[in-house]
Structures are given as structure tokens and as C-alpha cells.
Design a protein around this nucleic acid. Structure first.
Length: 502
RNA sequence: GGCCCCGUAGUUCAAUGGAUAGAACGGAAGUUUCCUAAACUUUAAAUGCAGGUUCGAUUCCUGCCGGGGCUACCA
């Protein structure tokens, strides 16, 4: 209807005042709720063309509109705003058409393919609250784009190699005693995460011992035997050493299994997972290609750079002096692989705003290289999640673990539900399902109601609130609507629709 | 230092450049024969500061003040 209003109004204005007006230039608003009208056309912009007062212009447009549109009941002009009221029959028609449409609100197919990347965890520790915000944003963005008629591919990216991954591997090798998720009864990602922490602890011990002998912290870190062992392990990994690779495979499998369990818990799924271990080498060849084509340059020490000062940025390193790849190298390789596999029109990266700069660089580099997908790169940037006490810090142990949080939400939901009662007829399974629906709904809504680009201060107590503008309250409202429909059906009142649980 | 993001009731969040800045929680005052009292009704309460553009600015521009981030041969 808004489109129709725009195009008809633009034609009327063009005819009345002999000035070409495009439909997009017509502003159609919803009036404030006290006004008994459906739409408002803003006439100020046309008053200038008409060389008449806004009120007079609005009246002239209104008079023409009512001649042309049979759906229009009446209009009224207030201070240059042309308020329109449509006939009840029109709205009843809209309602009848939509009431039994299971795809209410969905748009027709656009033929466009959009890839949405989100989550992107390291494989050395469990998911935390920050990942949950990322996943909720990415997953809902994918759903929205799908409803908007696009073909959507949901992808994850695992940062599964590098120094930090070796840390948990080395600690496991040293102190693991062949412990497994089965033998310890721990979720795989949590188990591996413990060895990552263990490594950091042991390293700190070594460093402080060396500092006690009179060395600076920097020198101590370099000298620490554990750090040397890490470098050796990374080197072995890159060479494909069987033992190291097997260890890597084993630990990463445990982590993936742990992640999968968490994804299931929050109702998330991916169409495809990419591994940086599989694309970082390709990234290197892309850098070599750019170097050959003179888009990049090599410094005397052998490192490769791109000069983006003309674009308002700095010079950025693309390959280290020793020839190993950096963060962006992998992203270049991954982007190429994705385009080959899916040829998406748009690639959306759901990544926190601390990486705004990185994605500016990535897009620019792809543009310089003339990649066909370069202009379709879009960074869906979101704010970090802080706690009332400040930023989450691994070192200070203030990171909120995703699994712990989800369990806590369910427990609180259970507690609050039991207080109210009303679940006497529920089986054990039904109760658990309900608690989880409530707990997860509360958390998702609490996080998604905030503009993604704003940072969130996560307050555990508020997140689990069941009153006011919250997930559980919407669920409660849904339940009551279903109840009304059920009763209507019992009394054979027709015209309603089946209640759908979705 | 340079660049980017944020700043709205006591609190947590809304508002394609449009009319009287909306909700919720919390505060105050009420509602029991009626759809689930996990509810409802009424009420007080806010655009960081100073300019500019505009018929009109929470929104766009400039400066300042506050908060955060980036500016690594970490990822």
C-alpha cells in the first residue's frame, strides 16, 4: 500500500505542479497513535515546488488522491501533513488474505545468495558469553535474510591452528595422562580449555622464576622453556609431523563435539564449517599473486605489505618476514574458497567491532586484487559484552562460560516456574523442555533486543527476568493467545487460525 | 597523537530528518465475581554541552566533555 501511495502521489504531484517527482521522494509515514488515520504523506517538500502553502498543497494532493483511490475513505490536513484513512473493507481484505498465510511477512525470492559467517571460535577453549551474542546475531540475521527472499548459507569459521592452539596441545602432552572426555566425564571443549589454562599457569611460573634470577619480563618470556617448546611444536605442525598432527586432530575433535552440543542446546546449526588450517596456505599464494601484480610490496626483511595510506589507513602486513601467514592472510584464502564453492552475492562477517579496522583492510585488499566478491564483503559489527565489573578477561577468570550460563538460565526458569505452579500435569520431559524454552528465550531476547553495534553490560539477574519487555513475557502472551483460540475452537467459533508453535 | 563506535527517564532499551521523544523495570496510587493475577489501570520522570544546516534535528555537520575500541610480523 505504501508503494502504491508513493507512485500515485508522485504522479499527481508531477501533473499538478509540472515537476518530475520520483516515487522514492514521497514520504509516507505512520501517524502518531492518537490520530485516527492509517498513513501520512508529508507535503512540505512539495509546497516549494507548488509555490503554495504546505496546507494548500496537501489539500490539493488529497483531493486528487481520493478521486483515484477507491480504497481511500477520507483525508485531513494538519500543519502540512496529509493524513489518510483507508476504508475498513480494505483492512478486512488484508486480514483475510494474511490470516491463514503460513509465510506471513515473507518476501518473494530475490535470486540473491547471501553467505552469513558467525561464531568463529578458537579451538582451544569453550564458547563464552561473547560467542553467544555473536551466534544469536548471526543466526537471526540469517533468518531475516531468508525471510527477505534471499538464499542464505550459514557458515562457521574455526580458528583451528596457530600458537594458541599449540598451547593446549603441549600442556596435554605434558600433563594429560591420556585423559579423554569419556574418562574425565567432561565436555571436550571444556577439557581442552583446562589444558590451555594449565599452560598459561605453568608458563607464568617459569617466567617469574627467571625474573627472580634478575632478568626483565620480556627476556624471561623469550627464555622460558615452555615458549621454546611451543615454537618447536608449531614448526612441527607446519611440517606435518605425524605425532603432532595426530594430537591436534584428537583434541580438535573433542572440541568440535563439545561445540556441537552447545549449538544443539541453543537451536543453532550451520550449513558449512571452514577451517583456517585448510585455507591459510591458499592465502599465501594470493599474497604472492598480489606481489607479482605489484599491488603489494616486499620490505628488505622479506615481509610483504600493502600501502593503504591513499585510502586513509596505514600500511598493513600481509605476510611475516619468515614467510608465515598472519590473520588476514587466512581470511583472503577463506574468501576465495567460499566464492568458488558458493558464489555468494554478499558475504556477511559477524565479528565484534574491535575488528572494524581489520575488515576495512580485508575489503580494500580484495578490491585491489579485483576479486569479484570484493564489493559484497560486509562486516556485521557488534559491540562487546561487558559484565557489571568490566570487560571479561580470560586471565582474571571473569569469562562467563556459555554452557554454565545456559544451564543457569534453565535452572532459574525452573525455579521461577515451580513458584508459580501450573505445571502439575506436565511430565518430567515436558517440564524440562519448558524450562529450557523459557531460559533460552529469556537470554536470546535480552541480548537481541539491544542494537548490535552497542555494547551490552550483561547483568545476570536482569537477563533472567520474566516480567516486562522480555522473552518469557512474549512466550506467555503467545500461550494466552493459543488458549483463546483453543477455547474459540471448543465453542465452534470460526474464523480463527490454528495455533502454531514456532 | 591519528582513526572508529557509543552517550535518551533512577535503570535497561526504542524512535526511515517529521506532529505531543515511546516501552519495560524500579517509584507512587489503585484493580479479586470477566479471556492464565506469570495479569491489568492510573501517575511522576529523559535527548551530555555549545554552535550550524533545515519549514522541521534524538537523528545530519563542526567543536567540546564523558565511556569504549582500534592503531602488533597476536588471532
Amino acid at each position: 500500500m505504501q508503494h502504491q501511495l508513493k507512485s500515485i502521489t508522485s504522479r499527481i504531484v508531477s501533473q499538478l505542479y509540472h515537476q518530475e517527482i520520483l516515487p522514492e521522494q514521497v514520504q509516507v509515514n505512520i501517524p502518531p497513535k492518537d490520530f485516527p488515520f492509517d498513513f501520512t504523506i508529508v507535503a512540505f517538500t512539495f509546497a516549494k515546488l507548488a509555490k503554495k502553502s504546505p496546507d494548500q498543497t496537501a489539500n490539493e494532493i488529497g483531493a486528487e488522491l481520493i478521486k483515484e483511490m477507491p480504497e481511500l475513505d477520507h483525508y485531513e490536513v494538519v500543519k502540512g501533513f496529509l493524513n489518510l484513512r483507508l476504508k475498513d473493507a480494505y483492512w478486512i481484505g488484508v486480514f483475510d488474505a494474511e490470516v491463514n498465510n503460513p509465510l506471513f511477512g515473507a518476501l518473494p525470492p530475490t535470486g540473491k545468495k547471501v553467505m552469513v559467517e558467525y561464531c568463529g571460535p578458537n579451538t582451544n577453549k569453550p564458547l563464552h558469553l561473547g560467542h553467544l551474542r555473536n551466534i544469536f546475531i548471526g543466526h537471526s540475521m540469517a533468518s531475516i535474510l531468508k525471510a527477505a527472499g534471499h538464499e542464505v548459507v550459514k557458515v562457521n569459521i574455526y580458528n583451528d591452528r596457530g600458537v594458541h592452539i599449540c598451547k593446549s596441545m603441549l600442556a596435554y602432552q605434558k600433563y594429560g595422562n591420556h585423559e579423554t572426555p569419556e574418562s574425565s566425564g567432561e565436555k571436550g571443549d571444556h577439557l581442552v580449555g583446562e589444558y590451555y589454562v594449565r599452560f598459561e599457569q605453568e608458563l607464568r611460573k617459569q617466567v617469574s622464576e627467571i625474573i627472580a634470577q634478575g632478568l626483565t619480563e620480556e627476556a624471561a618470556k623469550k627464555q622460558a622453556p615452555l615458549n621454546k617448546e611451543i615454537s618447536e611444536m608449531l614448526l612441527k605442525w607446519e611440517k606435518g609431523d605425524t605425532e603432532v598432527r595426530n594430537l591436534w586432530q584428537t583434541l580438535n575433535q573433542w572440541v568440535y563435539q563439545g561445540f556441537e552440543e552447545t549449538y544443539r542446546k541453543i537451536g543453532n546449526d550451520f550449513d558449512k564449517a571452514y577451517m583456517e588450517s585448510a585455507t591459510y596456505l591458499l592465502g599465501k599464494t594470493i599474497v604472492a599473486e598480489g606481489l607479482e601484480r605489484k599491488f603489494f610490496f616486499k620490505k628488505p626483511d622479506g615481509s610483504v605489505w600493502i600501502d593503504l595510506t591513499a585510502d586513509g589507513l596505514d600500511q598493513k602486513v600481509l605476510l611475516r618476514a619468515d614467510g608465515t601467514s598472519v590473520y588476514i592472510t587466512q581470511d583472503l584464502g577463506t574468501a576465495d574458497v567460499r566464492f568458488k564453492e558458493y558464489a555468494p552475492d554478499v558475504m556477511i562477517y559477524t565479528v565484534a567491532n574491535e575488528q572494524d579496522y581489520h575488515f576495512k583492510v580485508l575489503k580494500l585488499v580484495c578490491q585491489k586484487l579485483g576479486r569479484p566478491y570484493a564489493n559484497g564483503i560486509h562486516h556485521l559489527s557488534y559491540g562487546l559484552v561487558d559484565l557489571p565489573t568490566g570487560r571479561m578477561k580470560t586471565r582474571e577468570g571473569t569469562v562467563v562460560d556459555a554452557d554454565d550460563l545456559l544451564d543457569e538460565m534453565d535452572l532459574t526458569a525452573a525455579q521461577k516456574t515451580r513458584e508459580v505452579g501450573k505445571i502439575e500435569n506436565f511430565s518430567e520431559t515436558e517440564q524440562l523442555t519448558l524450562f529450557h524454552q523459557l531460559g533460552l528465550g529469556a537470554l536470546k531476547f535480552y541480548i537481541l533486543k539491544v542494537d548490535p553495534k552497542k555494547r551490552i553490560i550483561f547483568n545476570p539477574e536482569e537477563s533472567i527476568d520474566f516480567h516486562g519487555f522480555t522473552g518469557p513475557f512474549i512466550q506467555y502472551t503467545h500461550a494466552r493467545i493459543c488458549s483463546v483460540l483453543r477455547k474459540a475452537a471448543e465453542r465452534s467459533i470460526s474464523g480463527g487460525r490454528q495455533c502454531r508453535h514456532s
